[in-house]
Structures are given as structure tokens and as C-alpha cells.
Amino acid sequence: MANLLELVNIHKSFRMGTEDVQVLAGASLSIAPGEFVALIGASGSGKSTFLHIAGALEKPDSGSVLYQGRDILRSGFFETYRFRNQHVGFVFQLYHLLPELNVLENTLLPAMVAAPWYKALIRARPGRKLAISMLTDMGLGGRLKHRPSELSGGERQRVAIARALINHPSLLLADEPTGNLDPRTGQGIIDLLVRRRRDQKCGLLLVTHDADIARLADRVVRLEDGKITPA
């Protein structure tokens, strides 16, 4: 079976003052459809950078990112937007919800980005049903109208997960989703991610420091010295 996502020989360096810091030096990774890969590594090893490149949020200095065989680095703007919107879902350590929107609106945002403008006119907010059922399933059914500032960290992260899943992506990219949560809440979040991944049959690339979490994955890889090695 063809790979869902394939990162080949990724190089990335940042300019820090006068010197270049090489963060990724030929990192390669492929993820099969529906596969759960855990990415571990020391702090500052470039895990987030790698994840951003995988989600087309950042461009590598060299190397290629193939999504279902197509090179997303060399495709047009609109294809990139479409890729971010339709095919991947991001979950960040700091939740990154929009403070002005309530829980439901935050969840629906990617669907709204995808919808043509006239959908807004007839008030058929795309994905509304799915969002409500997902949020209810996550135990947030009573908090649809709440603003992120009124939620706990775990609840916010659940909203972020719902948002990542709303457009039925085939790949979830999660950057230390439990980093800011206590172990028990973190465990709940991970359970949710794993369960949801199974239900929606999407791939998952999860960055974590936690060995217990990594153990749940189909495969664990380590980022070290700019390269990916199996752990």
C-alpha cells in the first residue's frame, strides 16, 4: 500500500545571529494510512519543526514532502491551503483556540474555511451536526456556547482535537498535546485521540516526551542529530 505521507531527506537550518543552526539534517519518515507514529526526542531537537514541515506550515531548505505521492512543496498556493484545510489536522500543545469564538464556532472554523461563501448566507453552517455530535461525545455537549477562556486545559485540548477532525483529515499532527496537562487529563486526551483515530481511520503523527504514551503507538521514532531513527 502506498504511503500516506512521505518526508524525504529534509534539511532545515535557522539563522541565529551570525551562525546557522542545523536543526534537521536529512530527516526522513513515511507514514502509512491509518498508522500511529510517535515521535520522540530531546527538547530542541527539532520535533516541532519537523511536524510543521509535515503539515506544510513551514518550508524545508531541501528535501521533499510527498502526500499520497504528490509533492506538496512544489504545488501551488491553493493546493497548499487545501492540504492544510482538508487533509491534515493540527493539535498543538498550547491548544491555539481563537478566544473570540465559542467552543462550537472554534470547532467549525475549518469547515467554514472550506465552505463556499454562499453557504454562509443560508445559515447552513457546514459540519454543524458532526461538530455537535463530536463535542457531545467528548463530554462538551453542555459547553457549546462557552468561550475558551471559560474552559479547563483538558477541555480546551478536546475542542482543539474536535477542530482538527472536523474536515475528516487523513492525517493528524499532534505536537505534545498533553504537554500542558496533568497526567490523568493527558491520559484522557490520548485515549480520545487514539479512539478517534481508529474511528475516522486517519494517520497520526504524535510528538511526545512521555514513554507511556509512545508505547501506545504502532511505531516509535526518535529525532536525534537532525535525523530520524527508529527507537
Binding site: L57, F77, Y81, R82, Q86, F90, H96, L98, V113
Partner: peptide
């Protein structure tokens, strides 16, 4: 600033 990053990460375009 952060919102802009978020909107872009979920597929919002520059023009958007």
C-alpha cells in the same frame, strides 16, 4: 498574531 497563525494552519489563505 497568534490567531493569524491558527487561521493559516487550518487552511486560511493569505488573501483570506
Amino acid at each position: 498574531t497568534r490567531d493569524i497563525g491558527i487561521i493559516k494552519s487550518i487552511g486560511g489563505s493569505e488573501i483570506g
